[in-house]
């Protein structure tokens, strides 16, 4: 009989038994010991044994639970006051939502930033100087979406003007260096002109 039992257990463990044996194994001490041993053997054969073997965790856990002093009347906490008790989980949930939302927002912003074309570059998007054979005005306007979002009737014209000033400022900064270099010769001329 016992041999039959062990055979069934072995078959079940190999996945060859149609009926489960969970209930029996749990109830039968001998069977569960065998079950544990079979697993140990199998792990050993497959070289899957852990570095350290703790043979009887279940027993020590059971002991630990037994030694735990029983709490008969749980201490009243903040949670147990009706209103706060219902608010606290709410806050916790909303906190989770806030985090989730901010992550989503960060992703959206990140995506937007990755996708949007570079706005004007600090040293170089300055438009061309009056190059020989080139028309002025062939440059894309500076993006100002961040500051003005509502399209108005004169919005485009305004944007154009703002871009023009910003672009020209960049361009003049390049030219400034050139001028500064020649101040020695030019200053006197300019001063003469001014007077």
């Amino acid at each position: 009989m016992t041999d039959k039992k062990f055979e069934d257990l072995s078959a079940w463990m190999d996945g060859e038994s149609s009926t489960g044996m969970i209930g029996e194994t749990c109830n039968d001490k001998e069977l569960s010991a065998k079950w544990r041993n079979y697993h140990l053997i199998r792990d050993g054969m497959r070289k899957e044994l852990p570095a350290q073997l703790n043979f009887d965790i279940s027993a020590s856990v059971a002991r630990a639970i037994e030694n735990e002093p029983a709490i008969l009347a749980p201490k009243k906490g903040l949670r147990d006051i009706p209103v706060i008790g219902s608010v606290v989980p709410l806050i916790r949930h909303s906190g989770q939502f806030a985090i989730a939302a901010s992550v989503a927002a960060a992703m959206i912003i990140g995506v937007q930033q990755l996708n949007q074309p570079k706005p004007d570059q600090p040293f170089s998007s300055a438009p061309a100087l009056q190059l020989p054979g080139m028309q002025a005005g062939g440059l894309s306007p500076v993006s100002l979406e961040q500051t003005r979002s509502l399209p108005r009737t004169d919005g485009i014209e305004q944007k154009r003007r703002i871009s023009a000033y910003l672009n020209d400022h960049q361009r003049q900064m390049r030219l400034k260096a050139q001028k500064v270099e020649r101040t020695g010769e030019n200053k006197t001329d300019e001063e003469a002109n001014q007077k």
Binding site: L129, A177, V180
Partner: peptide, 16 residues
Amino acid sequence: PNVPPYSLQSEVINGP
């Protein structure tokens, strides 16, 4: 890009 290369007289690069 989009502009033929050109040179300016300057002793510095107007960078960031």
